[in-house]
Computed example of a mutant assay.
Amino acid sequence: MRIITGSARGTRLKAPAGDGTRPTADRTREAIFSMLGARVYDARVLDLFAGTGALALEALSRGAAHAVLVDAATHAILAENARRTKLAAQSDIRRGDVYGQVAALARDGRTFDLVFADPPYAHGDNARVLAALDAGALLAADGLLVLEQGAGEEIIERSGSLSLVRERRYGAARICFYAQEVQE
Results as ranks from 00 to 15, higher is better:
R2L: 09
T5M: 03
T5D: 10
S7Y: 03
R9Q: 12
G10A: 04
T11V: 14
R12A: 13
A15I: 05
A15K: 03
G20E: 05
T21Q: 11
T24S: 09
E30W: 02
M35S: 14
M35V: 09
R39T: 08
Y41H: 12
D42Q: 08
R44L: 11
D47R: 08
L48D: 04
L48H: 07
F49M: 08
A50K: 03
T52R: 01
T52D: 12
E58Q: 12
L60C: 05
G63F: 07
A64M: 12
L69S: 14
V70N: 01
T74I: 06
A76N: 11
A76E: 12
I77H: 00
L78K: 00
A79K: 13
E80I: 01
E80V: 00
E80T: 09
T85G: 07
A88D: 15
A88R: 12
D92Y: 08
R95P: 01
R95A: 10
R95Y: 04
G96Y: 13
G96F: 14
G96E: 12
Y99M: 02
Y99F: 15
V102R: 06
A106P: 13
G109Y: 14
D113H: 15
V115N: 10
V115Y: 11
P120A: 04
Y121M: 10
R128N: 13
V129W: 05
A132T: 06
D134P: 09
G136Y: 11
G136C: 06
L138G: 09
A141P: 14
L144D: 04
L147C: 01
Q149G: 03
Q149F: 03
I155Y: 01
E157R: 05
E157G: 09
R158N: 07
G160I: 05
S161W: 01
L164G: 11
R168A: 13
R168F: 01
R169K: 15
A172E: 15
A172H: 08
R174D: 08
E181A: 13
Q183G: 05
E184T: 11
